[in-house]
Amino acid sequence: MADISKEKMEQIAQMWNARGKGLITHMALEIEEVSSDGVRVRMPFNPDFCVDKDQTLLHGGILTALLDSVFGLANFVAIEKVSTMATLDLRVDYLRAARSRADVIVNAHCFRQTRHIAFNAGSIWFDGHEEAEIARGTASFALTRGDVSMFEAMTKGKAS
């Protein structure tokens, strides 16, 4: 699959950063790589997402939320003319205790799309420790297709 244009990638990054509120904004996600083959995103360490007093152990739920978010981004990029997208189901395996103050890196892609459904997979590790995955997940999304893509609808609002 061809790489998407630099312009579209910048628009996607802008759209994510311009959300202004909500969890994705709070996670302060930084897009590192985007192509129709997959996306790579960085989540800076945030003590709010920990479960322990010393704030070095991430809660599993934030990793689940991270996968769900980045699957959405991967679908934006890989699928043409999606007007709405909803997570149908999600499975996450927590492969080891997420104990570190390093940034978290997530890699995700859409491995199959049909008219109505997208199938995604992704994995998570601490920056610099790609060999030691901390979580892996798969999900399916229900898509509705329309002439105006969700991506276009959201970026047009930000144009002025």
Binding site: G61, L66, D68, S69, T87
Partner: peptide, 8 residues
């Protein structure tokens, strides 16, 4: 966010 629902 679906991830917040799953976390809760």
């Amino acid at each position: 966010h679906g991830g917040i629902i799953a976390s809760f």
